[in-house]
Design a binder for these strands. Structure first.
Length: 481
RNA sequence: GUCUCCAUCGUCUAGAGGCCUAGGACACCGGGUUUUCAUCCCGGCAACACGGGUUCGACUCCCGUUGGAGAUGCCA
């Protein structure tokens, strides 16, 4: 059995769509689980779409996701170059080989106008150039006339192929277009470059989205025309998104953040994203859901791949992210959360580790941290209504009478830490013969102005410091007066 | 329009003819723990699209219907 070689062939668009990342992941998983090679190839045949630094984005994303490649533009494995624009000289030769064998022809029809799109499109399948005399066509080309090279398809046949996940599929050739192989600018189209490069790079398994299912016969016709071995196809179910109206379609920007970079910037951990997308369209056939990359490559089997499209569920990603966050060590969490917290340069900076400890078990997505701790920087506007809390039997009335005593007790504290502060509040409750929940609520509202806070009053006041805490209680008393 | 594919809880999925009064997870709803919220624990809600076959028996196999998606670019 030959060595398994899979590839990831993104085009440099400047961002990594999660659908592409998942394709990369499965290709990587397949290679790793078979002890094969994973190749990175950049498909930049569309010169109009050139984006600066886009290749760096691809490297960075793959690295961050943990998908290491064995060969690529930056890692020569003897099959380079790995960037298609650097291979441009090579495609024409293959296209002309097809012309010579009658499997392709020169077309001089020119670019079609958008308005006549339908018509010309129709014509392209039955292009008059297909019938042109070979010598005449060759002469036109020699004279420098603008042209493209189209694939010639035997429309009388039926193409059948077998896909690893979708099974056997048959398509009548007559519905296939004479697709363009080589563009007017002498660059290959994606489809053509793909076939040539996959063959030249000895790719054994083509892993790609199921949107290519219906064009696969065109690929196969090309392989056959060249006399090349057809690779094993592994088509993946699409990742869908749901829009505001509830309609589902291929996941795109209108559905929310769809790039790996955006998700990371929003505070999703790369490991969580990878784990989540691994389960979108693939099942380990068990109840387990949390997998590291290494565990994934251990468990991965193509038989677990699904056929039906999967809707990207941000809620579940969020849950998975929280699982990964909780699994972080306190130090790692503090480090990961710091860039999001916006505390550097503020009074909170020196207390960051304490704040992080409070945040750790209560954060699902890192980007929500600033709003969770905003009250520490500045006491928010609030109304005395907040002092009402049924369960702890707190209300504005008893807050008005209790808070001054609490204030006094707190002011007398010599050691200002969470334990002593809580102790003082508890002892007050004991003296008053009320449940601790009541003064806890009263004080927490006074110092935070929030119904929901990370941590209780002790922790909050320790971070705030004695002076600021007492100032806030005094402020609350003014409100209550 | 044409072609191709898909079809189990709202979502991701398990199920390869009897193990299914269909299992897990997210979300949602209750209850408990917690000095608030959250965490955590316990419980609940919720699905085999429909119609025909095949079979002693169908979520599982076949056909059709319906619904959904993708493709149909000198984009990838």
């Amino acid at each position: 059995m030959a060595e398994v070689r899979t590839r990831f062939a993104p085009s440099p668009t400047g961002f990594m769509h999660v659908g592409n990342l998942r394709t990369a992941l499965y290709a990587w998983l397949l290679a790793r689980s078979e002890k094969g090679k994973f190749i990175l190839r950049i498909e930049d045949t569309d010169q109009a779409r050139y984006v600066a630094n886009a290749v760096e984005v691809i490297y960075a994303s793959l690295k961050s996701a943990g998908l290491d490649h064995d060969e690529g533009p930056d890692k020569d494995g003897g099959f380079g170059p790995y960037i298609q624009s650097e291979r441009r000289g090579l495609y024409r030769k293959y296209a002309e080989e097809l012309v010579a064998s009658g499997n392709a022809y020169y077309c001089f029809c020119g670019k079609c106008d958008d308005e006549d799109d339908e018509e010309i499109h129709e014509a392209s399948a039955l292009c008059p150039c297909a019938a042109m005399d070979k010598a005449e066509a060759a002469a036109k080309v020699a004279a420098g006339e603008a042209h493209v090279i189209r694939q010639r398809i035997d429309r009388s046949k039926i193409s059948t192929f077998t896909d690893t996940v979708f099974g056997t599929i048959s398509i009548e050739n007559k519905v296939l277009d004479d697709q363009i192989l080589l563009k007017q600018d002498n660059m290959p189209t994606y489809n053509f470059a793909n076939v040539v490069d996959d063959h030249l790079m000895n790719i054994t398994h083509v892993v790609r989205g199921s949107e290519y299912l219906s064009s696969t016969p065109k690929y196969n016709l090309l392989y056959e025309a060249f006399g090349w071995e057809i690779p094993t196809y592994v088509h993946l179910p699409l990742i869908m998104g749901r829009d505001a109206e509830g309609n589902v379609s291929k996941l795109s920007k209108r559905h929310g953040s769809v790039s790996f970079e955006n998700l990371v910037a929003e505070g999703y951990l790369p490991e969580a994203i990878v784990n989540y997308i691994a389960l979108l369209g693939w099942s380990p056939k068990s109840d387990r859901e949390i997998f590291t990359l290494a565990e994934l490559s251990e468990a991965f089997k193509v038989t677990g791949l699904n056929k039906s499209p999967a809707v990207f569920d941000y809620d579940k990603l969020r849950w998975m992210n929280s699982e990964y966050i909780k699994a972080l060590s306190p130090e790692d969490f503090a480090a990961a959360a710091a860039p999001f917290a916006q505390v550097s340069g503020t009074v909170l900076e020196k207390s960051w580790n304490k704040i992080a400890a409070l945040l750790h078990g209560r954060t699902e997505v890192l980007s929500e941290i600033p709003e969770k701790i905003a009250f520490l920087k500045e006491l928010p506007e609030y109304t005395v209504d907040l002092f009402n809390h049924k369960k702890s039997k707190s209300d504005p009335e008893n807050s008005r009478s209790d808070l001054p005593e609490l204030q006094k007790k707190l002011a007398e504290l010599s050691t200002w830490d969470a334990e002593n502060i809580s102790g003082a509040i508890s002892s007050f409750a004991a003296e008053k013969e009320v449940k601790a929940g009541r003064p806890m609520w009263q004080v927490r509202i006074a110092v935070s102005g929030c119904a929901v806070t990370p941590g209780g009053p002790g922790e909050i006041m320790e971070i705030l410091g004695k002076e600021e805490s007492l100032r806030r209680i005094a402020l609350a008393l003014e409100k209550l007066a």
